[in-house]
Design a protein around this nucleic acid. Structure first.
Length: 681
DNA sequence: GTTTACGCATCCCCG
DNA sequence: ATGCGTAAAC
């Protein structure tokens, strides 16, 4: 995708300056499609040509894939680039925590836990602390947040470095009365994690920062990593900003690349002001702006520039197209989501018939559920597609179940995993599972002597389970072999638990294949439990199982960041879908929605199709939508060709009207009304 | 006392 | 599709 550019265009002046600024702090403000990947690629190369050892270079990126890609690209010129150290903040943290765990007081093994585990722990603790009980008087129940809300409150407070009470005030004012309980819960949760040697997602960053505050460790790392580059700097959070500062403190050889107009992750704590703080923290910072866009035709950039013009806080920059030509983006209106989806699907079929490759086309949308009608239409037309984002592979129940076996083997005190597996046995619920876990904590053998359990009908199964765990523990090395044994135990249980047994069994087979690439368990678990997994969904592992074609891409705008396609469709561009309704009463949230549209638009290289449907159907209530406020200004509309002709296409309405002359052959339902009815079940 | 089955509401974006 | 509360079943 990118390689053709490398040949067509030499580095421009600004890019060259960034590539040649090897010493000291540099901030590259890089607009969409301005070749920041190339800058990093060539700067790595340049460093190595200046006799910097590749091991002295650290590249921190937003996804592991991005790090891999940049290192691979630099390696085409010089194979030594493969030795450059790179990854996400979390994977970097993970490695350092492993190396220095004793400094942190983890004398023995520790486990990383994911969000679902964290939520389970929080649910458990709130019950224990009595926060979930209804008051004795029998009156109205006092409202206490559910566990996923609790986790999100704690996580927000952590990632934004704000007090819990402030978060609640702003995001969940309905729980203001119980904020004290939530703070108590937070303490209990912290204790819970420490006692069981658990590290959750947020802890990783904090532990990394704590390690970096240790002067000895910091100096050690500064010697090891003499040149540091950070990508997607606009989406780092405050803590990550501090981590970057600490990493560069002694030598100041830090280059950060980012685009404040593409900051779209504030919901998880991203703090785009890190971009503005960088020059303050590193006073000698050289700021370089990249404004020449190599990706899109000018008409597409005209729209992008117009959309972002209203933004209040930003580094001013205007994108200029290097590639000449192209047409105005089109905006089409449809009656409902079904019509819109049908048109998009047919249009894609048309492009395909004209010779376009499906994987050079994408459809982008704000929220996952907006792609459902389209998925149906694409299936009808037999167009293969992959869906980016959505439920991730490791978050599905069956994968979590199986991984729980391995996690226990890795850390016998992983109560959450014990709980999960024990509950699989027939006749074991939360209470019994809790009792067994308590007994196990005393020593593994005890359980067999418990008269209590001996009589229960699940005792046989329990014995088998414990033997299996012991066997797995003894096995030691081979991950896929361990997984295989766990699957033998799990398959029969799974048959009862899920109706779609076969589909899930296929997933697990895929997991087994992936596991063969790992030589040790903790590496495997780290990848699949705490860090960004190598694969996000099964369809991505094996995208063309059915077709020879590389599939069309459906993606949320968030997941599309950093990617590009020849042709891009952005659908559901109505006020309420983008910006989403819940953002409406918050100015900063609305600004972020605007940047989201900017990101979506700038993904397109050649053609951009925008669309929306007028008739919405949100949570059972029909509504009539207007076009997104970000498009509905004179300036922006001037950059678009609007097409209203699709609004009243097939005679969808008339059949409902004349009830007097009832005709049995006359359709009462229309395609779209049927669709709505069916969807409501 | 516990487990389980069932109906109900809810679901934004993600490392 | 998941998770909760309630009611029946073990």
């Amino acid at each position: 995708m990118h390689s053709s550019h490398a040949k067509e265009f030499p580095l421009n002046k600004a890019q060259l300056e960034a590539v040649n600024s090897l010493e000291g702090p540099v901030l590259v403000v890089a607009g969409a499609g301005t070749g920041k990947t190339r800058v990093i690629e060539y700067r790595v190369l340049n460093l190595i040509q200046h006799n910097v050892e590749p091991e002295r270079i650290l590249l921190l990126t937003f996804t592991r894939k991005a790090a891999r890609q940049m290192i691979d690209r630099a390696s085409r010129h010089n194979i030594n680039c493969q030795k450059v150290d790179g990854g996400t903040f979390h994977s970097f943290a993970y490695r350092l925590i492993q190396k220095y765990h004793k400094k942190l007081g983890f004398s023995e093994v520790f486990s990383f836990i994911d969000e679902a585990d964290a939520e389970e722990a929080l649910g458990l603790l709130s019950t224990q602390l009595g926060f979930r009980d209804s008051p004795p008087g029998g009156g109205r129940k006092e409202r206490f947040p559910k566990k996923d809300t609790l986790r999100s409150i704690l996580s927000m407070s952590f990632n934004r470095s704000e007090k819990i009470v402030d978060i609640i005030q702003k995001e969940y004012p309905q729980f203001l009365e119980v904020y004290h309980d939530i703070e108590e819960l937070k303490d209990a949760y912290i204790k819970y994690k420490l006692e069981r040697r658990l590290i959750d997602y947020d802890d990783m960053l904090l532990y990394l920062k704590i390690l970096l505050e240790d002067e000895f460790i910091r100096e050690d790392l500064s010697r090891k990593y003499q040149y540091i580059m950070v990508d997607e700097f606009q989406d780092t959070n405050k803590l990550q900003g501090e981590i970057v500062y600490l990493l560069g403190k002694s030598h100041g050889n830090i280059l950060a690349v980012g685009d404040d107009t593409q900051s779209i992750y504030s919901f998880r704590g991203a703090y785009y002001k890190n971009m503005f703080d960088f020059p303050k923290r590193f006073p000698r910072t050289k700021i370089i702006k990249l404004e020449e866009n190599y990706r899109s035709y000018q008409p597409i950039l005209d729209l992008a520039n117009a959309v972002i013009e209203e933004e209040a806080h930003k580094y001013t920059k205007v994108l200029h197209a290097v590639r000449e030509g192209g047409e105005k983006p089109k905006l089409s209106f449809f009656k409902d989501a079904h019509d819109e989806a049908g048109w998009v699907a047919r249009k894609i079929r048309e492009l395909y018939n004209e010779g376009a490759a499906l994987n050079k086309i994408s459809v982008l949308y704000r929220s996952n559920h907006l792609s459902l009608p389209l998925q149906m239409e694409l299936a009808k037309l037999n167009i293969p597609f992959v869906v980016y984002g959505g439920i991730r592979f490791i978050e599905t129940a069956h994968v979590k179940d199986v991984l729980a076996f391995l996690r226990i083997t890795h850390n016998f005190r992983d109560e959450l995993s014990w709980h999960r597996i024990l509950s699989l046995l027939e006749g074991v619920g939360p209470k019994t599972a809790g009792k067994i876990v308590n007994e196990l904590a005393k020593g593994q053998g005890v359980i067999f002597e418990m008269a209590d359990f001996k009589q229960k009908k699940f005792f046989g199964e329990l014995t088998r389970l414990l033997n299996l765990i012991r066997l797995l523990g003894g096995e030691g090395k081979d991950v896929s072999e361990m997984l295989d044994k766990a699957l033998d135990f799990y398959y029969p249980l799974m048959k009862d638990k899920f109706d779609d047994y076969q589909k899930r069994a296929d997933d697990l087979k895929a997991l087994l294949e992936v596991s063969a690439e790992y030589s040790n368990l903790s590496e495997f678990l780290a990848d699949f439990v705490a860090l960004e997994p190598p694969q996000r969904s099964v369809s991505e592992i094996n995208p063309h199982a059915k077709h020879d074609e590389l599939p069309l891409v459906l993606s949320t705008i968030h997941s599309a960041k950093g990617l590009e396609w020849d042709t891009v469709f952005v659908i559901a561009l109505s006020d309420g879908c983008l910006p989403v309704t819940y953002a409406l009463d918050d100015d900063e949230a609305i600004e972020e929605e605007c940047r989201l549209l900017y990101v979506a638009v700038t993904r397109a290289k050649n053609n951009l199709y925008l669309s929306m449907h007028n008739e919405g159907f949100n949570s059972g209530i029909s509504s009539f939508n207007k076009v997104s406020r970000f498009l509905n200004t004179k300036n922006v509309l001037a950059k678009i060709d609007s097409d209203f002709s699709r609004l009243v296409p097939e005679n969808d309405w008339q059949s409902d009207s004349d009830e007097d002359s009832y005709d049995i052959n006359k359709p009462y339902h229309t395609k779209s009304s049927l669709y709505r009815r069916l969807r409501s079940f």
